[in-house]
Write a protein that binds this DNA or RNA. Structure first.
Lengths: 133, 133
DNA sequence: GCGCTAGATTAAATTTATTCTAATCTATTG
DNA sequence: CAATAGATTAGAATAAATTTAATCTAGCGC
């Protein structure tokens, strides 16, 4: 689906900057990107957009399911263009994030959530570091 | 083991503030605490200690395995006094973290880590929100 | 097409979490 | 008990993210 249609379907007004950012984000392959990185890319691509808008846009896209947020380190948020069910390898040395397709991992023995709450998502982060090889 | 012995065993000089903080942290039950919260508690308990030392101490304790760090939200770090194998429920509405004993959850189908890396830990965060009840 | 308006964008200031710095203090060693 | 390596400190600095108040613009009715 085109970026324009996806924005409309999500109820987001297709403004110049949202359209441009949607194209940057959604038309490449699966990526993990920070707000600062996206801002840099946008400027590099000639899109004039403020950092505040980057943050607004990333959060709005996340709310409507166009992106997913991955929290792995204090003080940095990654936004994941892969919204399918999946999990992550995270290398603490390089800060790199790598997808693990959802069907590979199976969690069993999931206990009932605390009273009065329901499960929204299960995030699995496999933390790795450079090995002894 | 006493706080003093645990510090010595970890190779950390048992200074007044480290000892006091170790007692606060390790002698209660399992807890999830932020740097700011611990600072508040320390001051409340009459321990004169700066925020910088709180951060230093939390990180040192984490390095030597006296604590574990749980990253669930950008811009906030929780330190977990439970260092046993376990996972977490995280309620996004309240910011509350709750332990899930490790033996409850079983992950299968774990793929091989990226070439040249080895697994250090598997973190599972079950994100919940207040239910419809 | 034209203007109106709700919603979007902006630069700049602010907040919040954390780290750094350089000076002072203290636990350990001899 | 003096020397010193390491710890602590207040305060400044940094960084990510959010807020603010002013300006802009997409989409609507005409």
């Amino acid at each position: 689906m085109s970026a324009l249609k996806r924005l409309r379907a999500a109820g987001l007004r297709p403004t110049r900057q949202r359209l441009s950012l949607a194209r940057l984000l959604l038309e490449g392959g699966d990526r993990h990107i920070t707000a600062e990185q996206l801002h840099g890319e946008a400027l590099g691509a000639g899109i004039r957009v403020s950092l505040a808008t980057i943050y607004n846009t990333l959060h709005q896209f996340t709310e409507v399911g166009l992106l997913r947020e991955a929290v792995v380190e204090p003080g940095r948020s990654y936004f994941d263009t892969n919204t399918a069910d999946h999990h992550h390898f995270f290398c603490e040395a390089t800060g790199e994030l790598q997808d693990i397709p959802g069907h590979h991992l199976v969690v069993s023995g999931l206990p009932a959530p605390p009273l009065g709450t329901e499960i929204r998502r299960v995030d699995i982060i496999i933390r790795v570091h450079p090995g002894s090889v």
